[in-house]
Design a protein around this nucleic acid. Structure first.
Length: 290
DNA sequence: AAACAGTCCAACCGCCTCTAG
DNA sequence: GCTAGAGGCGGTTGGACTGTT
C-alpha cells in the first residue's frame, strides 16, 4: 500500500508568493524545520502545496542564498562546469555556494549560452562551430607506429573512415590528462558521433555509433574500449581530423595532418592507428572525400 | 507616448529515482 | 516484490521589466 496524495491542489494558491506567505514560511521553518514538505503548508497555515513551499524555500528564502547579479568569476565557473557536466544544474549549483540550480539554469539560458555561442562554440558541446578554431586541441605523435596500407574502396571512403575508427585498438591520449578534461571531452562526444554519421558517412545507413557500440559489446572482436579515455579520444581524434580536412584546401591538408597531428600510443597497439592514419593521409589529398 | 520586441526570472509542470508501506 | 507518494531535477512558461522604434 502506498501513501496518501501529496496535496489536494483544489483551493491552493498558485503563482508568485506574497511577502506575507514568505514570512509565514520562513518563520515556520526557523521554528520547526521542514522535515516533511507535505506537512509544512498545513502546519504553517499556508494555502500552498508542499512542493511549492519547498521550491520557494530552496530557490529563494534560504538564508544562505546569495541574491543579486552573478560575478564574472561565477559566470566563468558556470561555463566551465557546464562544459564538464552538461545541463546538470544541481551538480553545478553544488559547486557554487549560495547559488541555486534554478538561478544557474536561468543565467545560462538567458546570458551564458549566448556568450558561448558568440565566441564560436556550440553551447551544447562547447566545441568549436568553426573547425579552424580548435585545430590545436588534439596532439598526436605517430613516430612509433608501423603503418598498414589501407584497403580503401572506391566511392565509399567516408564509410571506411568510420570503420577504421571502430577498428582502431589504440590507446590515444591527447592534451587532456586529467579526469575532468576527459569528462569534459565526453560531453561533446555524442554530437561528434552524430556529425561523423552525417558528414563522414554521407547518409549511409550504417551508423558509426551503432558500429562503435556493437564493437564494444562483441566479445569476439578486438575491443576498442580499453578505457574511458580511449572511447572519448578516438572519436575526438576523428572529429578533429574531420574538422581539419573540411576547412582546408588540399595543399593545407597534408601539411596539417603531418605536422599538427602527433600520435602518442603504446607500442603494442600501433597498427590500428597506422591504418587509420594512412587513410587520413590519403583523405588529405582527395578533394572528393568531404 | 504608444506599441512592439527582447530579456529576465520565479514558478510551474512532468518525469525520474528512492523508499515507505 | 510491488505500488505509489515524496523529493529532486531539468525543461518550460508567463508575466514583469527594459529597450527600441
Amino acid at each position: 500500500m502506498g501513501r496518501a496524495p501529496c496535496c489536494d491542489k483544489i483551493g491552493l494558491n498558485k503563482g508568485p508568493w506574497s511577502p506575507q506567505e514568505d514570512r509565514i514560511l520562513i518563520h515556520f521553518i526557523r521554528m520547526n524545520g521542514h522535515g516533511n514538505w507535505r506537512a509544512v503548508p498545513k502546519q504553517a497555515g499556508l494555502l500552498r502545496c508542499g512542493k511549492s513551499c519547498r521550491l520557494r524555500w530552496v530557490n529563494y528564502l534560504r538564508p544562505e542564498i546569495k541574491h543579486g547579479n552573478f560575478t564574472s568569476e561565477e559566470e566563468e565557473t558556470i561555463i566551465k562546469l557546464h562544459q564538464l557536466l552538461g545541463n546538470r544544474w544541481s551538480a553545478i549549483a553544488s559547486r557554487l555556494p549560495g547559488r541555486t540550480d534554478n538561478e544557474i539554469k536561468n543565467v545560462w539560458n538567458t546570458r551564458l549560452k549566448k556568450r558561448v555561442s558568440r565566441v564560436g562554440l556550440d553551447p551544447v558541446t562547447h566545441h568549436s562551430k568553426s573547425p579552424k578554431a580548435e585545430h590545436n586541441l588534439i596532439s598526436l605523435d605517430y613516430s612509433h607506429c608501423s603503418e598498414k596500407s589501407p584497403s580503401m574502396e572506391e566511392g565509399n571512403s567516408g564509410l571506411i573512415r568510420a570503420k577504421a575508427m571502430v577498428d582502431f585498438p589504440t590507446r590515444i591520449s591527447n592534451s587532456s590528462d586529467t579526469f575532468y578534461d576527459s569528462y569534459n571531452l565526453s560531453s561533446g562526444i555524442l554530437s561528434s558521433i552524430n556529425s561523423i554519421d552525417r558528414e563522414f558517412v554521407n547518409g549511409d545507413s550504417s551508423s558509426s555509433l551503432d558500429w562503435f557500440e556493437s564493437s564494444c559489446t562483441n566479445s569476439s572482436d578486438e575491443p576498442i574500449r580499453y578505457n574511458h579515455e580511449t572511447e572519448i579520444s578516438t572519436y575526438e581524434v576523428m572529429w578533429e581530423a574531420h574538422n581539419f580536412l573540411s576547412c582546408m584546401d588540399d595543399a593545407d591538408k597534408d601539411h596539417h595532418i603531418l605536422n599538427n597531428l602527433e600520435l602518442q600510443s603504446n607500442d603494442d597497439d600501433c597498427d590500428g592507428f597506422g591504418y587509420w592514419l594512412n587513410i587520413l593521409n590519403q583523405a588529405g589529398s582527395s578533394s572528393t572525400l568531404l
